[in-house]
């Protein structure tokens, strides 16, 4: 596998974000856990890419690696994350901070606990407005003859209105514990999209919400991102949601991406045995049959299986699967898969 991507080849792809050969390992009490192993994918402008997989497949770690959000957690990140001619993994903290929340934003799973409980919602959104929307504050001051504080509140009101929140005056004085999950996630989305970022990473952003609220939030997120021309990396374990709103889907298993394809192509013609198993496990309305499932458990990442990490659970495993790692091959047009079943065919 090539270690560095030549500049020329990178520019041809037009991708806004390119994750290349991402490896992440964490030290645990039992040894080094190899959470991610050679993750590769690209995100194109304005598209919605779903990253789906079971719990523990490394979806969230992938998301956090992009902006290097681990703090001082003892981990090792290797590989490249190309964003606008810079490799994010080589940037210093100060440089990263100018990208985080400004050009690449994130929304997390638990909206309420993602809001600092000791500051009002107004205080928290004002802080970010002052950080990212300096020209807008200036404009609002000149147009409406406001003080700086009034201008910030004015913008906050606009931004919260944009995500469908009402009774904003009360909201600005509220604390995280005083609002519902749906409201909290709308608020977080408003914060994330404040500066019209190029990329929004939604890490299980709707998983903790009621189904009805979930639908609203999804619709909102999609509409806003279309308006602001923001690409979304949508991380979820819910295949149904991925099918509904995403342009392309990447399937992750045990720290590797096993299949990437256009949504339609993936759901109609899944290639990887793991994807097939996952799709069979989705219950279908009107059919009273036992739910199918992928047998076995996600492997221990301190001692991952040799070769293809899925071979321990794969019904079609061959000898080569136990020995070597499959490469990513284009089985069909814009439909890549990492599996020897297809690699050998070629």
């Amino acid at each position: 596998m090539e270690k560095t991507i030549p500049q020329k080849a990178r520019q041809k792809t037009k991708a806004i974000l390119e994750v290349r050969d991402l490896n992440v390992a964490f030290k645990t009490a039992r040894g080094k856990a190899k959470i991610l192993e050679g993750v590769n994918f690209e995100l194109f402008p304005k598209e919605i890419l779903a990253l789906v997989g079971e719990t523990g497949s490394g979806k969230s770690v992938t998301a956090k690696s992009i902006l290097n959000l681990f703090g001082n957690y003892p981990g090792q990140i290797q590989g490249q994350v190309w964003f606008d001619t810079q490799d994010l993994l080589t940037l210093k903290d100060a440089q990263l901070e100018s990208i985080r929340g400004n050009r690449i934003s994130m929304v997390f799973q638990n909206p309420q606990s993602s809001i600092n409980p000791l500051f009002t919602l107004g205080e928290q959104i004002s802080r970010l407005i002052r950080l990212y929307l300096v020209p807008e504050i200036k404009m609002a001051r000149q147009e409406n003859n406001l003080t700086e504080k009034q201008a910030v509140i004015h913008i906050a009101r606009q931004k919260l209105n944009e995500v469908g929140l009402t009774d904003i005056d009360r909201l600005l004085k509220s604390y995280a514990g005083e609002i519902s999950g749906g409201m909290a996630q709308r608020y977080r989305i408003a914060l994330a999209l404040l500066s019209s970022p190029e990329i929004l990473i939604a890490d299980e952003a709707t998983s903790a919400l009621d189904v009805t609220v979930q639908a609203h939030i999804l619709k909102l997120m999609k509409a806003l991102c279309q308006k602001k021309q923001t690409a979304i990396l949508f991380i979820t374990h819910d295949l149904g949601i991925a099918a509904q709103i995403c342009d392309r889907v990447a399937v992750m298993y045990a720290g590797r991406i096993v299949e990437v394809a256009k949504t339609k192509s993936l759901f109609e013609n899944p290639l990887h045995p793991y994807t097939r198993g996952l799709l069979k496990a989705v219950p279908k309305f009107g059919k009273k049959e036992d739910l199918s499932f992928v047998p076995g458990m996600i492997p221990d990442l301190v001692h991952p299986p040799k070769g293809c990490r899925f071979h321990t659970r794969c019904s079609q495993a061959m000898t080569i699967c136990r020995r070597e790692k499959p490469r990513r091959v284009a089985a069909e047009s814009r439909h890549d898969v990492s599996c020897f079943l297809y690699e050998l065919e070629k």
Partner: peptide, 8 residues
């Protein structure tokens, strides 16, 4: 984590 992701 959320604050870190928003560039603080």
């Amino acid at each position: 984590l959320a604050a870190r992701a928003s560039g603080i």
